[in-house]
Simulated assay, not measured.
Amino acid sequence: MTRGLRAVAGAVGVALLLVACGAPADPPPADPTAPAPSTSAPADPPPTSADRTASVVDGLVALERSSGARVGVYAVDTGSGDVVTYRADERFGYASTLKALAVGELLRGQPVAALDEELPLAPEDVVDAGYAPVTGARVGERLSVRELGAAAVSESDNGALNVLLRRLGGPEALQAALVAAGDSTTLVDAGEPDLNRFTPGDPARSSTPRALGEGLRRYALGDALTPEVRDVYVGWLTGSTTGDATIRAGAPAGWVVGGKTGSAGRYGSRNDVAVLWPPDRDPVVLAVLTDRPEVDAEPDDVVLAAAASVVLAAYGG
């Protein structure tokens, strides 16, 4: 055998020996169309309701300590369903936040023509009712449901609520309607001004952040109201003249806020329940309720604005 043939035979023998011994074959050529393997770390999972709640607890505890107020919060991102809760099932006096629920129930399922119904404004609706910036000068007149709804929700007019509450059938009828709608928490037994007579520890004339938040969501975003009536109702919320220093003050720039405030004049009670529309996202519903242990304590809008800021930060606000 020549030297060249011996070299070829030797190479073949080595190759056969390597195959027999299990040596790895050369890798196949790379597919130029295949995506390159990722070298980045896996993305963090999106935050859960528990994550969001945990992120705000320290801030709300610090706010309570610094202000001396009790703070209750319920928030829900209507897109993801994620909630933030803090004392969300504790009772607070609802005060005028009840107006949003009362008007919503009065208009439930009604055609837009129902807004044109005129109702008499009697002296007993306004006398001793307290705050009545619209109805105070119109006793004896007939006002449309549209006018009364705007006065009650946007201006927090007590006389307007009394007229609408009578049209609904009184406090007992509102209580029954709320229970039928799924709210067995909110307790209604009086109109204005007595609905403000809340005492901590007594469930009368009280509700919870969760119940009020879900109530507002039902009317402003759900199908309890017909679309045309819902648009009017939402316009009353966004046109509120009483909430500039509360949730609206704690909301990020560019968010549209529609809400209903309440202040009982007792125990520093100050509340706000609102729907917030961030740019290019589903709305967030937020209820913030506050009170203090002293019966003559003053309400503080700054506490509500601060609580709203803490909570909305958990939603990227």
Rank of each mutant, 00 (worst) to 15 (best):
G93F: 10
V57E: 12
G59M: 04
F92V: 03
R52F: 09
L106P: 06
R146M: 06
Y86D: 03
R281F: 00
P209W: 01
V256T: 10
M1T: 04
K99V: 06
L178T: 03
R270A: 15
L107F: 11
P209T: 10
R91P: 08
V273G: 09
E118I: 05
W277Y: 09
G268C: 02
D51M: 12
L115M: 11
R87G: 13
P279N: 14
P200W: 01
V76S: 07
A180N: 03
R230W: 02
T226I: 09
V112A: 15
A25D: 12
D26F: 11
E192K: 12
D82R: 14
L312N: 09
D77F: 12
A114D: 10
D202K: 00
T242V: 13
R248K: 09
G250Y: 08
S80R: 13
A15E: 04
L101M: 14
G140F: 08
L165R: 01
S40E: 13
P27S: 06
N271C: 01
V61H: 12
V56L: 04
E64T: 08
L16H: 00
T97N: 08
V302A: 15
G81V: 07
R197T: 11
N271S: 08
D125G: 10
N162H: 04
P283I: 00
A69E: 06
A30K: 06
R281T: 07
S206Q: 04
V73P: 09
G104W: 10
G265D: 03
D223P: 00
A305P: 02
A160D: 05
A176N: 12
E192G: 13
A245K: 12
R6E: 06
D231I: 14
L101K: 01
V126R: 00
D125T: 05
E214K: 02
A43G: 11
F198H: 14
V103H: 03
A314L: 06
